[in-house]
Design a binder for these strands. Structure first.
Lengths: 189, 189
DNA sequence: ATTTTTAACTAACACTTGTTAGTTTGTTAT
DNA sequence: ATAACAAACTAACAAGTGTTAGTTAAAAAT
């Protein structure tokens, strides 16, 4: 087995195309053309178009879930936990922006068990974050504003980082992380 | 001409469907079914599927553009300008969340001149916001962090508000606006 | 009362979609 | 040298796509 086999290539090429036009607008012929082969040849490596979507989304969703569980279990302050969540999002965004775009925009095209599984992971993830913030407010580490506003303003920024990937490429990773923490935690005034 | 004629109905129904599954995944038969008519009947009112998308997106994009131009021209502090931008996003989100979702996710399916026009409005809008922030930093009203980080953390939160529409419905508009300003401007610590 | 308009319909079109079957070719293992 | 495999190909299909043409029935305008 080669390090990046043909199947992985298909997944990566597809993620890029899905990012640009969305899952439904990308055809198997589009994917094939981007790889310089015919559409039917794709089926030597993958089972269906849907399988490509699953491979792109589920793996990365599981990574978010696993690291979030580590963060929740760790014995650090709420602020520090949030900082680790920020790092997590930036890490994954820098490593795989195409897959993240796909996860954000095309998750609803997952089917059956994959869809259920994804939604459960997403709900659990949000609930974990909510608990971190809730604890932070209780311990007076975090300001006592409406908790949903805090959660969605933070998460929506982190989730859509991939859109700004091109611009953030000019910043290095460390500076991006420290600036992001200051902006999200201390505000801009 | 009735207050909401059949064409407007089609646009509204379509926006809702586009929000759920994306422009490409929604068929004319889907739209027709949601209106309890046959697909061919839609063409008594609209020219094409593409026209529906244009009607949904361009009007709302122009509203953003117009109000942003007013804000830029007004003689108020940078902070106050940003607060007015926050109000603008919340106003439009509460009034028309479906269209906003569509604008955010499906703008790339606009064609030719509509696509060019939209991209120009979007770039101009971002540039206007960038200038507001830049001025704020110069006048020491805003903290001197990387300007792109400030811009995208603020705008990405405002742009994806529609996702949280259901949850924000429990808050009233005034509280949502004041909480959002505090979180975005002063941070959460 | 007659014409025009509105808004629905049925039927069909040309094209695109994801996918399958069967075949071919070059590479790897025996 | 031979067998097995990997990965491409051509050809085709059944279903679904946006859209057009022509028709019909009720409402509005004359």
């Amino acid at each position: 087995m080669k390090i990046t086999d043909r199947k992985t290539e298909i997944v990566n090429v597809s993620a890029k195309l899905f990012k640009e036009k969305g899952y439904s607008a990308v055809t198997m012929r589009d994917i094939a053309q981007a790889m310089d082969i015919k559409a039917a040849s794709l089926y030597n490596h993958i089972k269906s178009k849907q399988e490509i979507l699953v491979l792109i989304i589920i793996e990365i969703a599981e990574e978010f879930t696993n690291v979030m569980n580590e963060i929740v279990a760790s014995e650090i302050s709420s602020i520090h936990k949030i900082e680790r969540v920020i790092d997590l999002h930036i890490d994954i965004t820098l490593r795989n922006p195409d897959a993240l775009a796909c996860l954000n925009n095309d998750w609803m095209h997952l089917e059956d068990n994959d869809l259920k599984y994804f939604i459960k992971m997403r709900n659990d993830y949000e609930q974990s974050f909510r608990n971190i913030v809730k604890n932070g407010i209780l311990k007076n580490e975090i300001v006592n504003l409406n908790i949903e506003v805090i959660i969605f303003s933070t998460l929506s920024t982190l989730r859509t980082l991939y859109i700004w990937y091109d611009k953030t490429k000019s910043l290095n990773e460390k500076i991006l992380k420290s600036n992001m923490k200051k902006v999200l935690l201390n505000g801009i005034i």
